[in-house]
Amino acid sequence: MTDRLSSTADGLSRAAELLRGGRLVAFGTETVYGLGGDATDPLAVARIFEAKKRPRFNPLISHFADADEAFRHVVPTASARILAERFWPGPLTLVLPRAADGAICDLAAAGLPTAAVRVPAEETALALLRAVGRPIAAPSANLSGAVSPSDADHVLEGLDGRIDAVLDTGPCAVGVESTILDLSGDTPRLLRPGGISVEDIEAVIGPVARVSASKTGQAPVAPGMLTSHYAPGLPVRLNAQSVEADEALLAFGSPLEGARVVWNLSETARLDEAASRLFAGLRYLDREGTRLGCRRIAVQPVPSTGLGLAILDRLGRAAAPRPAVQERSVA
C-alpha cells in the first residue's frame, strides 16, 4: 500500500526522508501532482519509469526550491535568468545545457546534453524540495498515457501500491502541466504549451519559435516533444548471441565471452538496475571501445517486459541507421 501523508511537519519530514533514500513520493504542485524521485540517483529515476509503466526513457523535469539552486545544474542564458525572475516560482520549465559539475543523472536527462528544470509555486512542494536538498525529478504522477492527476485521490487511483507515498497537498491550482521552453539554442523554442502563455513569455524575451510535437516521429527529448535521442558513436548490434573479437559488449545477466570491453547492465538480470545503468554503459563502451579499436557495440538480449520495453526502445533507437547529419538534441 502507498502511504498517504498529510502536509504537516511530520508528513513533510517523512516524504523528504523517503526521497533522500531513493524512494518515490508523489506531491502536489500548482500544475499537477508529480511523481518525485531523486534526480541524482539513476536507480530512483528508473523506479519512476517502472512505476508509471512509461514506455520510453523520456527526459524528466527536475524540480528545485529556487532559481539559484536550479542554475547550479544547468548553464543559464541571459533569457533564462530574466524568465526565472519573472515567472519562477511558477509553471514554466526551461531546457538548458547541463552544467559540467551538475548532479542531474543521465537517466533523468535521457542521456542528452541538456536538462529541463523548474521551480514550482506550491508552498508545500517548495518546503519539500528545501527539506530534500537535491534535484527532484517529477513527471506527472499517473500511469503513462492516463489523465494527469490534480489531487491525491487521482494519484492513488493509478499508482496505489506502486509508489511509497503521496504527500496530500489538496487540489492543484492550475491543473495543466508547465510550459516548456527550450533555451539551449540561438532561438527560444516552445516545446509544450502550458501554465504560462507564450504571449506572456514573448512580452519578456521577444519572439519564440513554435515546434510541432510530432513533426519528426522519433523519441521524445522533452515532455511534449519528439526528436532523436543520444546514440553512441560506435554502431550498435542488438540481440547478440555471440561476440566478435573487435566488439564491445553491453551485457545483461551472464556476459558472453570474447568482448574486448564489457559493461554489465545487471549481473542479476534486474531490469530496474539495468535501466539505471543504461546510459552510463553506452557512454563507457563508446569511449573505451573506441580507445581499444572496437568497431561496434554488441548488446545481449533484454526481456521485453516491464522496464525492458523502455530499455529496448532506447537501444532500438541507438541501433537505428544514422542520418548523414543528425539533428541536434535539445533536451
Rank of each mutant, 00 (worst) to 15 (best):
G281Y: 05
P120A: 05
Q326G: 05
R283I: 06
G306Y: 06
D66I: 04
V221H: 13
A209K: 14
L234Q: 04
A146K: 14
R317S: 13
D3W: 03
V262Q: 03
L96F: 01
I48N: 07
F27T: 13
I136F: 10
V211G: 10
F27C: 10
L107N: 10
L18F: 13
R328V: 11
S254I: 13
L5S: 01
A137V: 07
L315R: 01
A319T: 03
N264H: 01
L19G: 14
G175C: 13
P255C: 07
M225C: 14
L307R: 06
D68R: 13
C294R: 10
S184R: 04
F64L: 02
D168L: 06
G185I: 09
G233A: 04
E267C: 03
A231G: 14
P220S: 15
V211P: 06
G289C: 11
A16W: 00
L159P: 05
R98G: 09
P97N: 11
S254L: 14
V204R: 01
G161K: 03
D151R: 14
D41S: 15
P59F: 14
A115F: 04
V147G: 08
R189V: 15
P97T: 12
F252M: 00
L238R: 12
W263S: 10
D168G: 09
V32D: 07
E85T: 02
S79C: 10
G21A: 06
G102S: 07
V75M: 10
S140I: 00
F279N: 04
A146L: 12
A173V: 15
M225F: 11
E244K: 12
P42I: 11
G90H: 00
T169W: 12
D106V: 05
R277C: 04
T216V: 11
E244M: 11
P59M: 11
N142W: 01
R314D: 04
C172E: 15
A116C: 11
L285C: 10
K215P: 14
V243L: 11
V95K: 06
N264V: 00
G316R: 07
P76F: 02
P193N: 11
A131W: 01
L238A: 09
R81I: 01
E327S: 09
A320C: 07
V132G: 13
A116W: 04
A16Y: 02
T216E: 15
F64W: 02
L159V: 08
L234H: 04
E247S: 13
A219K: 13
I82N: 02
L129M: 10
E177K: 07
F252L: 00
E177W: 07
P321W: 11
R130G: 11
P76T: 01
